[in-house]
Write a protein that binds this DNA or RNA. Sequence first.
DNA 1: TAGATTGTTAATCGATTAACAATC
DNA 2: TAGATTGTTAATCGATTAACAATC
Lengths: 216, 216
Amino acid sequence: MEYKDKNVPEVVIKRLPRYYRYLGECLDQGIMRISSGKLSEKMSVTASQIRQDFNYFGGFGQQGYGYNVEYLHNEIAQILGLKNGYKAIIIGAGHLGMALANHASFEKRGFAITALFDIDEKKVGTKINGKPVFHIKDIERFIKKNNISIAILSLPKSEVIELADKLAEYGIKGLLNFSSAEIKTAKHVAVENVHMSDSLMTLSYKIKLEEDKENL
Amino acid sequence: MEYKDKNVPEVVIKRLPRYYRYLGECLDQGIMRISSGKLSEKMSVTASQIRQDFNYFGGFGQQGYGYNVEYLHNEIAQILGLKNGYKAIIIGAGHLGMALANHASFEKRGFAITALFDIDEKKVGTKINGKPVFHIKDIERFIKKNNISIAILSLPKSEVIELADKLAEYGIKGLLNFSSAEIKTAKHVAVENVHMSDSLMTLSYKIKLEEDKENL
DNA sequence: TAGATTGTTAATCGATTAACAATC
DNA sequence: TAGATTGTTAATCGATTAACAATC
């Protein structure tokens, strides 16, 4: 590990994917260098914050020049572990699971979706976007044999709660949880939640706020 | 509006849906009252923060007693605008749009999904989970006629960027954006992003961190 | 009344912004 | 060299935690 890990705050980590995405766009447009000032304008973050963020990992720029887009893009990929070849499975092959299996951006970011799992015998044996659907009873063997790091959880809350601890035992390192369950895994398992209806509720608040403002 | 709106910080707003969900569970279990201390244990937030959060909106508890679960649950719904009957449409009836149309929790929270829109003639005229799919050319009329507040965007980035300003013109109040586009609407349109692959990248970072820790 | 627990003020902690010397 | 822009320190701002008087 090149950079001193001074316990980077979560807020900083959450900004990295956004920087990464934006730098990817710059690359596509053939932009070779960029300053924190320019990045700041485009992304509505202060230039100061951008430099501060990067400096948690050691500083990737050059005085008087700015940042080399490709280099920076690459470094952020490294920091996020996108080059680590983490393999993922999707658990729950319902509508959401299917949508996730078809979601190109996961693989674009370096994560291989290797299979889906479900209890529904009608789905088992089929393929979704070229990925096989297996029965959930075979999940332990599959995870261990194929060295799966990530489980993407697109099943109901109750089943997620039951499953979480087992997945930790089988060697899963991280859970991307789409259910409304609050997962507590004691072990060293990372959890990231995508609570879609929470986002909708937050949006609702903002709309209401705006309406109230207008009705003053 | 009952409570003084002292410009509640975004972090507080983002916690409200979580409180709301948890209080809903308490209700289901027949729990009538709860203290900030108990809530704190269950949700891994400090009791102090919980009280502080609620007090942005005026305080819903009673000294020596705690909070009435039903009342608090209800008040949070009010704050978030869940009782406002906001109507939503889904734009983009691909795999993700379909999954969203089948996602029960949106309607459970009080948002009616009234229709989907797509350009694909093969989809137009069909129904998804009982909701009609219309051609996108009819979207302006539909929004205005049915007083739609929320557009859920499940289409590619490029199309989202094109569409956003138009939706604002048509009277949409809020966008729930599932694409990787960074939306900039000048007008008073609220935006909430669900960047699924950002979450996966954040998860990746956490996994990597854990692995590095183990390899010390 | 005594015990519990809130609402709220004050203290602490952490993150963001500002400023500027270092240097390409 | 002069101009630009970083890396980094210091100042500010805001959010979290602690403490406790108010009160049910």
